[in-house]
Design a protein around this nucleic acid. Sequence first.
DNA 1: TGCGTTTTTGACAATCATTCTCATTGTCGC
DNA 2: GCGACAATGAGAATGATTGTCAAAAACGCA
Lengths: 132, 132
Amino acid sequence: MTESGTAVRNTRQRSAVSALLAEVDGFHSAQDLHAMLRDRGERVGLTTVYRTLQGLADAGEIDVMRPPGGEHLYRRCSEGHHHHLVCRACGRTVEVAGPTVESWAERVARQHGYVDVSHTLEIFGTCPSCTG
Amino acid sequence: MTESGTAVRNTRQRSAVSALLAEVDGFHSAQDLHAMLRDRGERVGLTTVYRTLQGLADAGEIDVMRPPGGEHLYRRCSEGHHHHLVCRACGRTVEVAGPTVESWAERVARQHGYVDVSHTLEIFGTCPSCTG
DNA sequence: TGCGTTTTTGACAATCATTCTCATTGTCGC
DNA sequence: GCGACAATGAGAATGATTGTCAAAAACGCA
Ligand SMILES: [Zn+2]
Ligand SMILES: [Zn+2]
Ligand SMILES: [Zn+2]
Ligand SMILES: [Zn+2]
């Protein structure tokens, strides 16, 4: 039952988006990525960029961040559960792991009888380069 | 300089929204609250509900949550820094404090040279009533 | 209580990221 | 190469939120 019936196909567009995500650093919006592809000469529809990013996110291959009052931002991250320390000014991002936080969240939720627990956590600040 | 030049006026609509927020439990969207007011017989425009909520949020009197893929949710909370344990099904909310998390976030940010640090943290789960 | 000034309201239009539609195109197992 | 079917993309649709602006309401003051 681990097999999915869906046949995913390789396309030029999907490769282009993946390649771009592998090169850029930090979080970027779908529109940003679409513009970058256009500048590169890659012809990919905006709808396809959205769909591809959504697919990659569902597959856990990229992370999505929803900054207050802005568009969704996407970034190729390392595997496994982690959180982000993001610079408010330039977007520079550090992945951080917090085992203590994980267990704390789980414990607090259980204490109140909540099950099927998940959480969201982001840390914002101004990075060294932007402090100067 | 603590005085603000702006003269805030008391209106029926503002009172209605405030009163409603004081009664309901959990987080609710602007549209939800607008509908509730309508059901109560209170006549308040949707635009005004949005504006009032925004004002209360800016004043720190209510908390705003932005759940993945949904509208903004508002809730009258207690004072001081805290986080939320929210039921995905019914919205029932428990305010939680995590001193450990606070210091952890601060420490991690400093270690990477980030300053002016803040964070967002929400815990989601299914509450006892909704576990059925 | 009546006035004038200033804020507030609210019906409606506008915005804008994201999603939907669907005819056309591209993949890929055979 | 063929054919079934996933993928694409231009444009329309969606939907929460914000902007507009004339009319209504508050309130300091007389
Ligand atoms: Zn920076
Ligand atoms: Zn975590
Ligand atoms: Zn519940
Ligand atoms: Zn905190």
